[in-house]
Design a binder for these strands. Sequence first.
DNA 1: TGTGTAATTGAAAACGTTTTTCATTTACAC
DNA 2: GTGTAAATGAAAAACGTTTTCAATTACACA
Lengths: 146, 146
Amino acid sequence: MQFTEKKIESTLRREGYKLTPQRRAVLNAIADSHDHLTPADIYDKVRQEHPGIGLVTVYRTLDILDKLGLICEVHSGGNCRSYLMRRPQEHHHHLICSECGAVADFTECDFSELEHRLSRDTGFEIEGHLLEFSGRCHNCRKATPS
Amino acid sequence: MQFTEKKIESTLRREGYKLTPQRRAVLNAIADSHDHLTPADIYDKVRQEHPGIGLVTVYRTLDILDKLGLICEVHSGGNCRSYLMRRPQEHHHHLICSECGAVADFTECDFSELEHRLSRDTGFEIEGHLLEFSGRCHNCRKATPS
DNA sequence: TGTGTAATTGAAAACGTTTTTCATTTACAC
DNA sequence: GTGTAAATGAAAAACGTTTTCAATTACACA
Ligand SMILES: [Mn+2]
Ligand SMILES: [Mn+2]
Ligand SMILES: [Zn+2]
Ligand SMILES: [Zn+2]
């Protein structure tokens, strides 16, 4: 923990970000929890020790920490829905371009083995799954080869 | 297409829902597109033929169609983030309880083969993936065995 | 083919989350 | 210490979504 925290602080500094008490507080809130915390969760936790912090600062700090790869953003259930016609036996998954948002479909996914194992290990009764790959699509690769 | 549409209309009726022009319009908007449409997308499309429809009605219709299993909701990128500390080499995935939201972690995922194939077929350069199982957790199963 | 009624609709307002704006404060290089 | 650019927080705007409620409408039934 302390190790990780030190490393994170030095990363911030190295990237030219100032190390403010607010950032430290957000960092600690996340580090102290083994759960996923929403921005609001983090705001609430941080305010206990640090009343007066602005929610805006929490958002800004999260953006930075995420951009630096120090925390990771989890795509949790909520307001990010889109819909499509359910066509029978058309279970499929997506490849999404991180640059332009282009979507390609694919259908391959065989999780029967993994589902058995997980079910046994966790007691969950598995009902469905979500599989998504992200990457750069053909067009974006041509446009800006990295 | 016509077939699917007819089936859907009869399903609505069978479940006691009235078949209004607005519902038909939302249905057609989704059926006509092979893309995922957000509620706002659908609203825009529907309004072309059916100005005066309320966005509220779109939302309500989507809820119903989803509940009946006629369309499916896709978890697309957007505003549903939560954060956790990125611990090195801790790439992992989630099992999420659809009833209480409990989360269990697991680490197994080997997509190297699939990634190769997808990359070849689609031209995407794959950078990452998201895998999530949903189901009912141990506690929820004990509480309400289905 | 009317008629009654419960379901459905849309305007408006409320809501929760995230972003923008801007004046004030602060970290830190010198 | 001092100067300066970066960071903060209050407030308001901007989202996407839900609630409320009076007016409208689909459809079962006479
Ligand atoms: Mn698709
Ligand atoms: Mn986890
Ligand atoms: Zn692209
Ligand atoms: Zn549960």
